[in-house]
Design a protein around this nucleic acid. Structure first.
Length: 434
RNA sequence: GCCCGGGUGGUGUAGUGGCCCAUCAUACAACCCUGUCACGGUUGUGACGCGGGUUCAAAUCCCGCCUCGGGCGCCA
């Protein structure tokens, strides 16, 4: 098995051993074909019943689909074979027989619904178009890491078991930590801020976040992957520049290095890298444009959060990625700094894909006294966050950053209808296993 | 959290009170077929989420439960 040849590498003239899954069996009578699939592709194995060893034919044609087998034989050029080559077997071994009743059909002749697919994710991922999503996700992560390094960021890892939430209370998963109350981390927000006050100055983290919201939508997860950025000595405008750079790099990486996966999804032609210089609309402009579309029954007024329907109307209107800036301070969290000239306005921004919010960020409040005030205004007890606020007394530089939803990036990039498609084993309101 | 809509063989479906011993595809089993590439053909196997109710008669109507999906809110 160590010396197995990947099916894609089988060259006519060689004798090879391939290993993989039985994708399909086609018995035409005197001749039969077994298609073996591995990660690299598929190859046809030919069985000519009258001319071959009986035991070999018996093994080859009685195997169940999706069983794991090895086949040893000569590779021959054959234009009638699907890939132009086929194997004439000398030996075949069944390493792991599959049950004949499969919970879904990996060859894709019959569709399965998403819950069925997620319950049987291992089999689901044997389909090229499903596997391709995760190849693209991996390439997205790789190119994002590389882009962060090019921006002089240091990759960090912060705790996922924490004593307090980012914004206080209710939407956290409580756990018991040696008899003490603790929570699963909702965001690395406070920790990454502490790091810009450290000697690292500019950091990024790619890691899980946990939210106990009982939402049931195609765009929310209870465990998601957050791509976070935070840097000292930049303002919200600099943070938006970095955000644009990372998002564009993610697309560029996929376009350059994941062509096969895009083809498996039938997207090789339509996949395009977003144009740089994403428009930056102020919140005020955003609500005016939404109101002007006439899509909403009620006009939005200053201070309203943008309803989903409004986001979509604006997304259709703008037609590309765009930022919304200068949100009202009152609907942004305490760690977002207010605008110096108008404290009704915040430095918070969101990056929107036409159909979905991708990023939330802003310049942070780095002044200790303002920070404590902010806690109090939001009804939070600064004492509970002392580990955080304390460090603002020992030299905290002005800083800004953002968090990007990793699954949402994959989802919007590939036009997936459901965010669960972008996670191997999604955690949602109804699903804790597998 | 609020509001909708579903659950029929292994998978995906048709079927709004008897006419349909539940349709079709795929899978599985058996047989036929020497070049398939969604191979083809014949025959067969296999299901109405659970519990209760209405009715001469329930997959179909009503109630409860379980379970799944969607919309909104909130967010990434």
């Amino acid at each position: 098995m160590e010396s197995r040849t990947r099916t894609a590498d089988a060259t006519p003239g060689e004798t090879v051993t391939v290993a993989g899954w039985v994708h399909e069996i086609r018995d035409l009578g005197g001749i039969a074909f077994v298609i073996v699939r591995d990660n690299s592709g598929k190859i046809q194995v030919k069985f000519e019943k009258d001319e071959m060893d009986e035991d070999l034919v018996e093994t080859g044609l009685n195997v169940q689909r999706e069983s794991v087998v090895t086949v040893t034989g000569a590779v021959e050029e054959e234009e009638r074979a699907p890939t132009g080559v086929e194997i004439v077997p000398e030996e075949m071994e069944v390493l792991s027989a599959a049950d004949p009743e499969l919970p879904l059909d990996p060859s894709g002749k019959v569709d399965a619904e998403l819950p069925t697919r997620l319950d049987n994710r291992t089999l689901d991922l044997r389909k090229d178009e499903v596997k391709a999503i995760f190849e693209i996700r991996a390439e997205m992560l790789r190119s994002v890491r590389e882009a962060f390094r090019n921006l002089d960021c240091t990759e960090i890892n912060t705790p996922k078991i924490v004593a307090t939430g980012t914004e206080g209370g209710t939407e956290l998963f409580p756990i018991t930590y040696f008899g003490e109350e603790a929570f699963m981390n909702q965001s690395p927000q406070l920790f990454k801020q502490l790091m810009v006050g450290s000697g690292l100055e500019r950091v990024f983290e790619i890691g899980p976040i946990f939210r106990a919201e009982e939402h049931n939508t195609p765009r929310h997860l209870n465990e998601a992957t957050s791509i976070d950025f935070e840097s000292a000595f930049i303002d919200e405008s600099g943070a938006m520049d970095a955000c644009e750079e990372i998002v564009v790099s993610a697309y560029e990486g996929v376009a350059e290095n994941a062509q096969d996966a895009l083809e498996a999804l039938g997207m090789e032609d339509e996949f395009t890298v977003p144009e740089r210089d994403f428009p930056r609309l102020t919140y005020q402009e955003a609500i005016e444009r939404i109101n002007a579309t006439g899509e909403l029954d009620e006009q939005l007024v200053w201070g309203d959060d943008l309803p989903t329907e409004g986001e979509r109307a604006l997304g259709d209107d703008v037609g590309q990625h765009y930022f919304i800036t200068e949100w009202p301070s009152e609907i942004k969290p305490f760690y977002i700094k207010d605008n110096d000239d108008d404290e009704e306005l915040s430095t918070g921004f969101d990056l929107m894909h036409p159909r979905l919010e991708l990023v939330s960020g802003g310049q942070r409040e780095h002044r200790h006294d303002h920070l404590i005030e902010g806690f109090e205004q939001q009804g939070l007890d600064p004492e509970a966050f002392e580990y955080y606020t304390k460090m603002f007394r020992y030299g905290m530089p002005p800083h800004a950053g953002w968090g990007l939803g990793g699954e949402r990036l994959v989802m919007t990039m590939l036009g997936l209808d459901n965010i669960r498609e972008a996670v191997l084993f999604p955690r949602d309101r109804q699903r804790l296993s597998p």
